[in-house]
Design a protein around this nucleic acid. Structure first.
Length: 889
DNA sequence: ATACATACC
DNA sequence: TACTGGTATGTAT
């Protein structure tokens, strides 16, 4: 397996497709024959064509690099060399050989499990997976070139007798749990890297082990025998495995018993005593794993993770390798180690390095100066450590997950309707997973792969975290529709679709700052985390001190920040608000309400339809009369939307009749909420859904001429309706690209987005802004960033801290307000729902605006109380990561 | 913040 | 017939 670069010297086929002998068990096979078969099976396929394309991209990258290299001067190189030397000595000084890091890896894990459970497979070449893709293969199959990540149909060509067993993850997970129990005995903080592998720090265990009595190091063979592995002559026939006590037993309380030797076969009385050295401890661990699971593991022992990983491969299968903790041994080991063996250096990096004549780690050291000039800092730092045989000496605590996704490959899918419904399914699955882990995330990413294997990702980040199907789908669907439109009139021809959630908001992580503000805003009670009441203004401190806040009018949360179109942020101006434009003790209207009132006024002027007017009126009343507290309760309790209903109903969201029924009828238990933008009833009590609706409306506001929108749009983000859109809408997608009206009226945003031209956009922006400004006299809002304002601004008073700001620069002022008003605070106040302007309005019009809407909580420390995470973390994870943070220590 | 590429299992 | 799925991170814009 030390053959070095596999295919780069070969010609006539893609280096990325040829087998590499990186894996154990691939020694001495007929590579030419294998590669020929692989190529023949692939050539001409779309997959192949795409690989070709990717390879060319890599080649270009390499060319570019070579050009760069050619321009490096002697002087630059010298300078780099001295830098490198400096760093080398620094790193050298930090070298820590005191830890005993172990990397354990089960041998051909899935395949081994299947073989264990089906002994007939034992002597056959077999693999786990499907005709499309294999997860792993046994060593027998590897002789034919059959390996993990190879499609089954090709494997079959390489080895016609190959038996392919479908995966059974539950089983592997169960076995994984068993081995992890054992791992934990040696390092309770071990880090699993996958079901079958883990890093352990044996240092502490070894220290204790020195004083352990032999009895504690004595383990019994499983009732009958040794094992079913390739290296042991005596094989178990798997079936006799119905032994009760599968676990090896520690004879801690029988100190005097001297262990029998394993010679005493058959009887369940064979023991093995293990020594106190690392190797003995590791051997013991492997032994226990094997006794318990009938599966073998391999391990690597070294002073750091990077080396341990390489070592575990060295004597695979069913073996281990220990690299002595001396600088000399490490450097020797590194010398001829092919760079590709190093975790983090994959196909592409290998190829680039090879282009520079670097194949082994010693070359890496020799070329560091050059590498420092050609690669990114992170990359060459990593190379640097590798060349010195350095790596992480502590095992980082497993961090919280950063993303969660689900994706699916299928036969060509070109029908938009089906694509949307598939998208929904994915969202359903994902939402379920998210909820299992109680996660909420702000970023939704759609991934699609077309039949040419070209992959695209499209993401959108919301100002608040979401978790339900409707919320996720609302975004994903939007992203998908955009892609569909972009392709039209051609259909999107997909082979894969996936949805990912990231940017999680941790539930328990609240900064002190937030807490204090919240305490401040909420004297006593009221758990706003339940759910926000969108229709009510946050009380400002003055209010709190001067008015008694009624229990029935908790302050919920902040809805307030609506904002902006174009450059203007519009903050609700609390000063004036407090100044008392409202009468009496009547609850103050939220910004939304005021905006709505203004809108109503405008609409009246513009002769809206009777029905519209009616509906809106009722909704205003309803929203004002409602008891927020109750709303909160009912909203959180009820998940009214039946989102599982298949596509379609009519393209009518909420009929006026329904609206009435839901609002005027039951003031305290509304089944719908009133959108402050379009003034319509949205039939949901899920505030996140409602929030989405508003987002959409706001987006419309920016993309639609105000009047037409106000009067006839049936904007509704209710998932029910959305599905309807999905089904009905896709037809239009291809046909009506220029029909703005249509897109506005029923398709909603997804399509309207693409119709929006820059000119129109700013025009509309203006009109929206004007609407908002018009409220001026009674319910003024302060367009903080409006550049169109002229004359000198009055003293600017921060609506949050109430302090007069010593600036006239609106940007500066706005920045101040941003800092004051931390979105996460709002979020905490509001539970999951915080209002803001539609995120899509911002990002979807990428060409123009990068709206500045809600403050993004930049101030919020990303602190993650990890009492246990040792040194400062840099990058982590696999690959470079672990090595790197050491570098920065 | 996005998109895409690389890497690992 | 037929070339995965899940997660993290690096790089570039």
């Amino acid at each position: 397996m030390e053959n070095g670069a596999p295919s780069s010297t070969e010609e006539g086929f893609l280096s990325r497709m040829a087998i590499n002998d990186n894996k154990a068990g691939m020694e001495g096979l007929d590579r030419d024959r294998i590669n020929k078969i692989i190529m023949e099976s692939s050539k001409g396929s779309r997959f192949y064509e795409n690989e070709l394309k990717k390879e060319q991209q890599v080649n270009q990258r390499i060319e570019k690099m070579m050009l760069q290299k050619a321009q490096i001067t002697e002087q630059q190189l010298k300078k780099a060399q001295s830098q490198v030397e400096k760093m080398t000595s620094k790193l050298e000084k930090s070298r820590d050989l005191s830890r005993a890091i172990v990397h354990v890896d089960m041998d051909a894990f899935y395949a081994a499990v299947e073989i264990r459970d089906c002994p007939e497979l034992k002597d056959k070449p077999m693999a786990v997976g499907s005709m499309s893709m294999l997860s792993t293969s046994n060593y027998h199959a590897r002789k034919y070139g059959v390996r993990a990540a190879m499609p089954g149909f090709i494997a079959k060509k390489l080895c016609p007798n190959l038996v392919i067993v479908p995966t059974n993850f539950d089983k592997y997970r169960a076995v994984s749990d068993e081995i992890r129990e054992i791992f934990a005995d040696y390092d309770p903080h071990f880090q699993p890297m996958s079901l079958d592998e883990a890093y352990l720090d044996f240092t502490d265990h070894l220290e204790q082990r020195q004083s352990w009595p032999e009895s504690s190091r004595t383990h019994r063979y499983r009732a009958s025998s040794l094992t079913a592995d390739e290296k042991q002559p005596e094989d178990i026939q798997g079936t006799e495995a119905d032994i009760e006590d599968l676990s090896p037993v520690l004879f801690e309380d029988s100190p005097s018993s001297s262990p029998c030797l394993p010679g005493s076969e058959g009887a369940a009385g064979a023991f093995e005593v293990f020594g106190t050295s690392v190797e003995e401890a590791v051997r013991e661990m492997r032994f226990r794993v094997e006794q318990k699971t009938m599966l073998t593991a391999s391990a690597g022992i070294a002073p750091n993770m990077m080396l341990a990983k390489v070592c575990s491969d060295k004597n695979k299968p069913n073996g281990h390798y220990r690299l002595p903790p001396t600088r000399e041994a490490v450097m020797d080991f590194i010398q001829n180690l092919p760079v590709r063996k190093v975790c983090g250096i994959g196909k592409v990096s290998e190829k680039m390095l090879n282009a520079l004549g670097i194949t082994s780690c010693s070359h890496l050291g020799q070329q560091m100066a050059l590498l420092s000039l050609l690669f990114s800092e992170t990359a060459w730092h990593h190379f640097m450590e590798v060349s010195l045989g350095l790596g992480s000496t502590y095992i980082p605590r497993h961090e919280e997950r950063k993303s969660m996704s689900t994706e699916r490959t299928f036969r060509e899918l070109s029908n938009a309707e089906e694509q949307l419904s598939l998208c929904r399914e994915l969202c359903e699955d994902l939402a379920e997973d998210m909820q299992k882990e109680s996660l909420k995330a702000k970023t939704v990413t759609l991934k699609i792969k077309n039949i040419k294997f070209e992959v695209k990702t499209r993401a959108q980040t919301l100002p608040y975290a979401v978790a339900t199907v409707e919320e996720i789908f609302a975004v994903a669907k939007d992203l998908l529709k955009t892609e569909i439109e972009n392709e039209s009139p051609q259909p999107l021809r997909l082979r894969l679709m996936g949805v990912r959630m990231s940017a999680f908001v941790s539930v328990d992580d609240k900064t002190p700052m937030q807490k204090s503000i919240i305490g401040f805003l909420q004297p006593g009670k009221i758990d706003c985390s339940a759910s926000p009441q969108i229709m009510h203004q946050i009380p400002e401190k003055d209010q709190l001190s001067s008015h008694t806040y009624q229990t029935s009018q908790p302050l919920h949360c902040l809805s307030v920040q609506i904002g902006q179109r174009g450059e203007g942020i519009i903050w609700p101006n609390k000063q004036k608000h407090i100044g008392g434009d409202q009468t009496g003790e009547e609850p103050r209207q939220s910004f939304f309400q005021r905006a709505h009132a203004k809108r109503l006024q405008l609409q009246t002027t513009n002769a809206p339809t009777g029905a519209e007017g009616c509906r809106e009126k009722s909704s205003v009343t309803a929203s004002i009369d409602r008891h927020p507290k109750e709303d909160v309760l009912s909203a959180t309790k009820t998940k009214t939307n039946d989102c599982t209903a298949p596509d379609l109903s009519e393209n009518e969201s909420v009929s006026p009749v329904q609206a009435h029924a839901s609002t005027s009828g039951y003031g305290t238990h509304p089944k719908s909420l009133t959108c402050p933008v379009c003034s319509r009833q949205v039939e949901t009590t899920d505030l996140n859904v409602f929030n989405m609706h508003i987002d959409q409306c706001l987006k419309d506001a920016g993309t639609t001429a105000k009047e037409s929108k106000d009067s006839d749009e049936e904007s509704n983000l209710d998932p029910e309706n959305d599905r309807l859109e999905s089904a009905v809408g896709h037809k239009r997608i291809g046909e009506c690209e220029d029909d703005e009206e249509q897109s506005i009226n029923s398709e909603g945003l997804a399509s309207s987005r693409s119709f929006l031209q820059e000119g129109q956009q700013s025009l509309k922006k203006d009109s929206v802004q004007k609407v908002l400004l018009n409220k001026g006299d009674k319910e003024p809002v302060t367009p903080v960033k409006s550049q169109s304002r002229q004359g000198k601004s009055p003293a600017l008073v921060c609506p949050v801290c109430q302090l007069t700001q010593d600036t006239e620069d609106l940007t500066v002022f706005n920045h101040h307000v941003d800092l004051c008003l931390n979105q996460d605070v709002l979020h905490e106040l509001g539970g999951q729902t915080t209002f803001s302007i539609n995120p899509s309005a911002v990002k979807n019009n990428k060409t123009t605006e990068r709206g500045h809407y809600l403050p993004k909580a930049k101030g919020k420390s990303k602190r993650r109380d990890s009492p246990s995470s040792p040194p400062p973390k840099k990058a982590k994870g696999r690959g470079f990561c672990n090595t790197i943070d050491k570098f920065f220590r």
